[in-house]
Simulated scan of single mutants.
Amino acid sequence: MNTIDLFKALSNETRLNILQWLKEPHKHFDKPSAHLSKNMSEKGGVCVGDIQEKAKLSQSTISQYLSMMQKANLLESERHGKWTYYRRNEETISTLAEYIGKDL
Rank of each mutant, 00 (worst) to 15 (best):
residue 1 M to C: 10
residue 1 M to E: 06
residue 1 M to Y: 04
residue 2 N to W: 03
residue 2 N to T: 06
residue 3 T to K: 13
residue 3 T to N: 11
residue 4 I to N: 12
residue 5 D to V: 08
residue 6 L to C: 12
residue 8 K to E: 12
residue 9 A to I: 08
residue 9 A to E: 08
residue 12 N to L: 10
residue 12 N to W: 09
residue 13 E to P: 09
residue 16 L to M: 14
residue 17 N to S: 14
residue 17 N to A: 15
residue 17 N to L: 12
residue 18 I to Q: 02
residue 20 Q to I: 08
residue 21 W to H: 06
residue 21 W to K: 07
residue 21 W to F: 13
residue 22 L to P: 03
residue 22 L to R: 04
residue 23 K to M: 09
residue 23 K to H: 13
residue 23 K to Q: 00
residue 26 H to T: 09
residue 27 K to M: 06
residue 29 F to N: 02
residue 29 F to P: 02
residue 30 D to S: 13
residue 31 K to P: 04
residue 32 P to V: 03
residue 32 P to G: 04
residue 33 S to Y: 03
residue 37 S to E: 08
residue 41 S to Y: 07
residue 42 E to P: 06
residue 44 G to D: 07
residue 44 G to H: 03
residue 45 G to M: 00
residue 47 C to T: 01
residue 49 G to E: 04
residue 49 G to K: 04
residue 50 D to W: 03
residue 52 Q to R: 13
residue 52 Q to E: 10
residue 54 K to M: 12
residue 54 K to Y: 04
residue 54 K to Q: 13
residue 56 K to F: 10
residue 57 L to V: 14
residue 58 S to T: 15
residue 60 S to V: 15
residue 60 S to W: 02
residue 60 S to D: 11
residue 61 T to H: 04
residue 63 S to D: 09
residue 68 M to S: 13
residue 70 Q to P: 05
residue 72 A to H: 01
residue 73 N to M: 10
residue 73 N to P: 00
residue 74 L to D: 03
residue 75 L to K: 05
residue 75 L to P: 04
residue 75 L to R: 06
residue 76 E to G: 04
residue 77 S to I: 01
residue 80 H to D: 02
residue 81 G to E: 04
residue 81 G to C: 04
residue 81 G to S: 00
residue 82 K to I: 06
residue 83 W to S: 05
residue 84 T to P: 05
residue 85 Y to H: 02
residue 85 Y to C: 06
residue 87 R to F: 03
residue 88 R to Q: 11
residue 89 N to D: 12
residue 90 E to P: 04
residue 90 E to F: 03
residue 91 E to Q: 12
residue 91 E to A: 14
residue 91 E to C: 05
residue 92 T to P: 01
residue 93 I to P: 06
residue 93 I to K: 01
residue 94 S to Q: 09
residue 94 S to C: 11
residue 95 T to D: 15
residue 95 T to S: 14
residue 95 T to Q: 14
residue 95 T to A: 15
residue 95 T to C: 12
residue 95 T to Y: 02
residue 96 L to Q: 07
residue 97 A to E: 13
residue 97 A to N: 09
residue 98 E to S: 15
residue 98 E to Y: 11
residue 99 Y to V: 11
residue 99 Y to R: 13
residue 100 I to E: 03
residue 102 K to D: 15
residue 102 K to P: 05
residue 104 L to M: 15
residue 104 L to S: 14
residue 104 L to K: 13
